[in-house]
Amino acid sequence: MSNESFSKDTSKTKTYSLVELVKAPTTMTDHGPDNSIFSFPVVAIMELLLTLIVIVLLMAMSLGVNAPLEEIANPNTTTDPAKAPWYFMGLQEMLEHGHPTLMAVTMPALMVLFVIAIPYLDNSRAGSGVWFTSKRGKRITLYTGIYTLIVMPLYVYLDTTFPARELLRGQLPDFVLQTVFPALLMGVIVGLPLLVIWRLKPTSREFVLTLFTVLFVSAVIFTLAGFLFRGPGFELYWPWNMPGHYSPWDNL
């Protein structure tokens, strides 16, 4: 089989000519492509420095503060309050506001599913590698964050001090009070900023920015509420004004 592209008698059939002279620097002259630098040793040294900084900080913390250790485990004496590790305090706080299957299983599961699905909901390539993608994205994140910072602590506080669900117990079926009612309330709180964004004709990125910000800030608020603001009897207190000798920091 003969290969026409590389036929041996090119010299007879093909001719070459100078097409154009371009007066411009070649891409490689004087600067590397795309403003890059050698990763060895620059990045290696940066990583080494970061390692040292992390170890020094951890060492300082460990020399200053001892890890907590209480009495030996005793299944017969419940601690008050009994708290999960801090990163699960958001879940434990959720339990205070509705039926466990809704608050501690369904909602967290939906949240994890949403987080996993993010790159498939927003698969545009534009704005990758830029904080908040655009000025508008930055504003959306800021306003959504402020909204959640105001509404969620209010929800936690009001739902605890005016427990409508407890007062109406017996008058409405439990399923309505503990599942339908909190689910609707949560749906409205999370849905409201999405509705506002919807009217601004968002890109998929802006839609995802809104929903993620609501969920992330809510998760932080619920975690802080459970970890810092819940004292004996799992009642709400100021962290610096806990009754007895209880300090939320001892739970770390």
Binding site: L69, I72, A73, N74, T78, T101
Partner: peptide, 20 residues
């Protein structure tokens, strides 16, 4: 295996039981 550990895990795992 102190009180902190025991009750935190008791609380944490009891949440799992609510999965329908």
């Amino acid at each position: 295996w102190d009180q902190l550990a025991y009750w935190a895990i008791t609380v944490g795992t009891s949440v799992a039981a609510y999965e329908p």
